[in-house]
């Protein structure tokens, strides 16, 4: 294991989706699809073996970021984190995602890493994935035999596992259209931005005046996948999100997460701070609306 040496593999360059599907059909789970490749190459340097790698770099038209107020935000498979950050639409209409992109890794990695790649990595610590889960949307998966849209809620099926089948290519993420009464925010607890988070949180709140009529709360780094905090959502739904309501929710958060000890933090510390950080993230979302 050395960060100088990559494992050996055959690198394939499809020029069209049908060429890509042929490769996926032929090699199944013996081929690793690479868009930005920033995570995959690190894994390869740590000994990850794959007989084939398929680079999307010569596939045309997949690097788009387009917005329609009725249809929402469409993010192509090769669209980078930097593209999110450069977009005023993302900043205004999907603040949680913009805030996640702001603190993502490093500027060099933002220029290359893709949004869909972060989702497909399926790490419970994925920052952009955490924001995307709270905001809600669908992933478009295409194969030779057709296509299907998988709800983001159903996309992550286990640690490092997604709903994508080996013969499918994830070509687009479609985030739900924004609404003026919907607020969102993202926060991460970490040492420096370059590090993976000890804890990350994204919230999406549908408001009617001061009352929160619906909400999606997502927490990362506290389970094998990103977690929806259903119990805490139930407790806060329909309430005015004042200090008392948020304070009361802190204990509920601790009950529904399963943090472990790892390189970055301990389970006990994560459990201790999770509820407080959720409170702060909700306050951040509410504050943004006042500007």
């Amino acid at each position: 294991m050395s960060s100088r040496v990559l494992t050996e593999f055959d690198l394939l360059f499809p020029h069209s989706l049908s060429e890509a599907w042929k490769i996926l059909n032929q090699h199944g789970d013996r081929v690793t699809t690479i868009a930005g490749g920033t995570d995959t190459l690190v894994a390869m340097k740590a000994g990850y073996n794959t007989p084939y790698a398929m680079s999307l770099s010569r596939l045309p038209d997949l690097d788009y970021l387009t917005f329609d107020p009725e249809e929402g935000l469409r993010v192509g498979a090769r669209a980078t984190i930097a593209q999110l950050l450069d977009s005023s639409v993302v900043k205004e209409c999907y603040p949680a995602l913009w805030q996640a992109a702001k603190v993502f890794a490093t500027p060099q990695l933002k220029n290359v890493a893709t949004v869909l790649g972060n989702m497909l990595r399926a790490s419970p610590a994925g920052d952009c994935s955490c924001a995307i889960y709270a905001l809600g949307g669908k992933v478009l998966l295409k194969s030779e035999s057709g296509q299907r849209r998988v709800n983001v809620d159903d996309f992550w099926t286990g640690y490092s596992q997604t709903a994508r089948q080996p013969n499918e290519l994830a070509v687009e993420l479609q985030l739900s259209p924004p609404a003026t009464n919907r607020l969102s925010a993202f926060k991460r607890l970490t040492r420096v931005n370059e590090d993976l988070a000890k804890l990350n949180i994204a919230v999406s709140l549908t408001m009617d005046g001061d009352t929160c009529t619906d909400l999606r709360l997502v927490m990362g780094c506290v389970g094998p996948t990103l977690l929806r905090l259903h119990k805490t959502e139930d407790q806060l739904r329909g309430k005015v999100l004042d200090k008392h309501a948020l304070q009361a929710a802190i204990a509920t958060v601790a009950e529904e997460i399963t943090p472990i000890d790892d390189k970055r933090s301990t389970g006990a510390y994560r459990r201790k701070v999770a509820g407080v950080y959720l409170k702060r993230t909700i306050e951040q979302a509410l504050e943004c609306s006042e500007q």
Binding site: S3, L11, F13, I34, T38, L41, S55, N111, V112
Partner: peptide, 19 residues
Amino acid sequence: TVLIDGDKAINACLTLAAT
């Protein structure tokens, strides 16, 4: 760090030359 296509900073250690 090198620049690609003008002034975009990238990590050369994580870029496959063939791409």
